[in-house]
Computed example of a mutant assay.
Amino acid sequence: MKIVAGLGCIDDYPAFCEAGADEFFCGYVPYAWTKRYGTTLALNRREVLCYQVQLGAYSELEILAAMREDYQRPVHLTFNSLYYIPEQYPMIEEIIRSCMDLGFQSFILADPALMVYLRQQGVDCQIHLSGETGENNRKMVETFQNLDLKRMIFHRKNTIEDMASMIAAEKEAGGKRSRTEFEAFVLNELCQFSGSFCHSLHCDELGHLCRTPYWLRPQKAEDPGWKKRLETFREEGKSAVSSEPEYLEMEDDLCGASGCGLCALYRLQEAGITHLKLVGRGNHSEDMKADIQNLHKSLTILKTAGSEAEYCRQMKQQIFPNGCSSQCYYR
């Protein structure tokens, strides 16, 4: 399995390569798009300018393309919105063609209509079906395979059993000619929402909906502590249904504090996963380097472990000697 790391700044590309990343995904939003559509008609749902989440200049793409030639680590560009208005499709086609002129051949797409449009226009790029699309069953996989997909990215809510079933069905249908790759989330940003049903924005003007305080379990009126909590919230001027998410209480430097799937690597490999998604665009560079190194170390342990139990024992001993975050992607 290969490590696919999020890249928010071209300066991090060499360091992340040296840390052990095999591939990268990166957002690109040209200023012309930002000027025309702002944040309300987003290109990839990461319309952030106040810190480094994505590239915003063609010159940055040119520099990244040159570094990619030196390091030989692929970079996939994301166009992650769930839908676009009709006038935007020709503009997106133009952007993608300009990226392909620099040697970028693979694009992470979530909008089925955009995929169909690009194929109708003769754009022969590699399509990675975004986890934001929300693929859920083998019939959906079969439908998208008609668009000649290069890779299927499973969303955060897929179970390992579901992924294994879909992968097995695709392999059976494609036989020896099947070359589809399969990618699963493994570190960071375990969101309570399913991306395909989330219509919030990640931008400078609004707080991220996934960071909105909430309770993780139902509260009932007969709960002995309910009345006391209600009075406390009223006194503090807060909503009676608001509290800090548990994962925000984790230590910032703890690997997988906001989502972790390292214990599941053995099962993901058996299911047929070929690539592991390490989310982290906008994170501190040093934190991302540490995440890449920990994931690389886990994969090294996986190669020699004779069983899932042995793998988990060695991995936890080396990466979580004082305990993990318990923010599991796959329980």
Rank of each mutant, 00 (worst) to 15 (best):
N158H: 03
G207T: 07
Q145C: 11
H155Q: 14
L61H: 01
I96Q: 00
A113F: 04
S165C: 13
N136D: 04
L302D: 05
S98R: 00
F185Q: 01
Y84T: 01
K277A: 02
T180M: 12
L254E: 03
V29N: 03
D124H: 04
Y117M: 05
R331N: 11
E236N: 12
M67Y: 09
L209S: 11
I63A: 15
L278S: 04
L190W: 03
E286Y: 06
Q54F: 11
Y51H: 15
R229F: 04
V4F: 10
Y311R: 01
T304N: 11
E286K: 13
D223Y: 03
Y247K: 13
S59P: 06
L295H: 00
L268M: 12
I292P: 00
L248Q: 14
A257C: 14
E170G: 11
D11N: 11
V48T: 09
G27A: 10
C312Q: 15
E231M: 14
T180F: 06
K277L: 06
T159P: 03
V141R: 00
R138G: 03
R229I: 02
T78G: 01
S298M: 05
E87C: 05
L209W: 02
S298F: 03
G225Q: 12
Q145H: 10
I85C: 09
D204Q: 03
N294P: 02
E132A: 12
Q314F: 08
A169Q: 06
G131H: 01
T212A: 10
E161I: 08
Q145A: 09
I301N: 02
M315A: 05
P30R: 12
E236H: 08
S285E: 09
M100G: 02
A264L: 05
Q318A: 13
M315T: 02
V279T: 07
E222A: 09
N146Q: 15
F154H: 00
T143A: 14
I153V: 15
L302T: 04
S106F: 04
R151P: 01
I96N: 00
Y83H: 11
F233M: 15
A240T: 13
S325Q: 08
F104M: 02
C26G: 06
E183G: 02
G122R: 04
C260H: 00
N146M: 10
L209Q: 09
F107M: 02
E18N: 12
K176I: 11
Y89L: 07
K2E: 15
R217L: 10
L49S: 14
Y71I: 10
A42Y: 09
D223C: 05
D124C: 03
E132S: 09
D162I: 05
Q121K: 13
I167D: 02
A169F: 06
D223M: 05
A173M: 07
M1L: 14
V279K: 03
A164D: 05
F154A: 02
N146V: 08
R46N: 12
K303M: 10
D253S: 13
R211N: 14
L43Q: 12
G174T: 05
K2A: 14
S285R: 14
F79V: 07
F79I: 11
P224H: 01
P74R: 04
M288R: 03
C50I: 10
L109A: 06
S178T: 05
Q52R: 14
G6Y: 01
K35M: 13
S258C: 15
Q192S: 06
Q293N: 04
E251A: 13
T143S: 11
L82W: 03
E69P: 02
Y37F: 15
T39I: 13
P218N: 06
